[in-house]
Design a protein around this nucleic acid. Sequence first.
DNA 1: TGTTAGCACTCGTATAACGAGAGTGCTAAT
DNA 2: ATTAGCACTCTCGTTATACGAGTGCTAACA
Lengths: 349, 349
Amino acid sequence: MTRADLTEREEKILTAVIRDYVETARPVSSSAVVKRSGLDVSSATVRNVMRALEERGLIRQPHTSAGRIPADEGYRYYVDRLMGPVLLPERDRTRLTAELTVLRGHDLATVLTEVSRMVSDVAHQLAVGLEPAVESSVIERMEVVPLDATRCLAAVSMRSGQTRSAVFECASPADRQTAQAATALLNDWVAGLAVGDAEKILATKVGEKDCPFASLLCPLVEQWPALFHFHDSERVHYEGARYMLRHPEFSDDASILGEILDSEEALADLVRGPADPQDVAVTIGGENRRKKMRGVSLIVGSYRVGATVGRIGVIGPTRMRYRRLVGLVGHLSGLLDDFFSSDGTEERR
Amino acid sequence: MTRADLTEREEKILTAVIRDYVETARPVSSSAVVKRSGLDVSSATVRNVMRALEERGLIRQPHTSAGRIPADEGYRYYVDRLMGPVLLPERDRTRLTAELTVLRGHDLATVLTEVSRMVSDVAHQLAVGLEPAVESSVIERMEVVPLDATRCLAAVSMRSGQTRSAVFECASPADRQTAQAATALLNDWVAGLAVGDAEKILATKVGEKDCPFASLLCPLVEQWPALFHFHDSERVHYEGARYMLRHPEFSDDASILGEILDSEEALADLVRGPADPQDVAVTIGGENRRKKMRGVSLIVGSYRVGATVGRIGVIGPTRMRYRRLVGLVGHLSGLLDDFFSSDGTEERR
DNA sequence: TGTTAGCACTCGTATAACGAGAGTGCTAAT
DNA sequence: ATTAGCACTCTCGTTATACGAGTGCTAACA
């Protein structure tokens, strides 16, 4: 159970076990390791080493006298130290950039859905895309327009390029003049603020006695969260459920898929948590907080849209191609960063 | 194979077979039918009748000397003629209305997600909610506001209560004055039109040589579909995948679930097709166009939002509680109709 | 001390045989 | 037309068996 480094030979054998198991999904025998690792040793030697690896908790035996399969800790060691430079075939690279350019000009939800689809297709795994939390998006401009005696249209554009719009009720009628004046005032107050902050500011402003345009602004503030879908708007896009079901580890008991798909919050929580701003975060099996999620691994990357971040990720059995998928997610993170920062500025590459 | 009516006794036996099979998921024996149907006949008699029903294709034997299970045609006969008045327990009724009132004032996507959740919880099935096609929604008002030198915010509100907004690029700068005039003109043109029609009208108008505000309106029209997510905006909300996996018919081979979840279009097509404006449409197993969907049944209802219709539905194995689920979907259709027609007019019940 | 060949042992999987039980289909009696 | 009785069929669970893959161990070797 020491944390010390493995010898080079141990590392090679661990790698071989992982690579082979990822391919075949069956316990890996010592002789298979000999073949794959290229090591010039006998299977007996490999067995000795494997025993050592097992004692360290890196691999395990499903039952006595079976081959070895990687343990969560083994995957962890592999991901952290053995995996080597992440790798994404040129083929996939070009495909991704190509498909992404087509998406220029489309709204964020569409882009994210399509990107999730791309990811799941390339990864052959369940892919998930998380929209940036609009809560911390910075408001560029708001607009309030009267529709009829009791209803107004409100629209917000964020620096991130996201927009929100909704119709809200206001008891007393407002004419266009008033609405324009109110809009101007509103923008003075909230333009340049994050959505979350703006809500607080507005609540105070509107609460004051001499607040102008109160009859218009009060209802707006009251209905703020519902109207703009602000709070729970970290929408999740799934794609590629079919891949999940194809993995032998889930083909008999697919209940995990149900758990994942049905609990947006659970997943959002997971996806939000670990990822570092820049890097790709890998969560392996038992490392997940949710008990239900033990047995699956997550690879999550983030992309910036203005001041906020969204996430893209891949979910699959712990037996997954970490190197390739980390490469994929990382690469796509970068692409999306560019995509959203060059924003509408057309093709600046 | 005659289409003639069944005798009363035959109907009772068919009903018993279906009811029992729906509960137990196991082939129904003649003696079980005797118990359940309340008929005062021997099991031998029931066997004779069952043979007749089998020859008509209403029920079938999984293998020789097993009980009978309903065939698709049997379910069909049951749904069309035997099911009797649809039934939804008072408990569920009140629950639905209660949960629905809480959703007042929330935007359509949120409402639909929550409704799907409610449906799946009550039905214990995979539920699906389809947003109304915005294509045929009637535009109430559009608004164009300049943001900076090259970008404008556009917002549309539909009579249905739906709204769309987006940022678009326009080469030459526009001041607020111009934008207001353009907005006025725009509303003259498209207010009161369906979104789909408005697109065509605008395209012609903008194509004309002396079109005013061309520098502003041209880009708007060009980016119309992408901007407003108009064409492919029949968003699908799924809920309750876990229920699907619990059914014994899918627990071993869950690949169907993958197919359903991954092919939004396939499903949207299905859901769009059959439902009559007012009624609840039931599609049973092999009646589905898509081969992949044989083995599952659909119950679909519609709700009106202004001039457009959306759908809610339930997907499950053919072995489902048709009476209850038709009741549920029908009831909810009505509730949603009211919900959206009383629109923002607060509590008019 | 590390490595390896050889071999006995373990354990899962596949296959067949078997019995029990459920349910039908048929026949003959009512 | 209905039904009691009975033989027949088919599934399912259990047990026995053989097979094979793979290990762990021991002893020999560099």
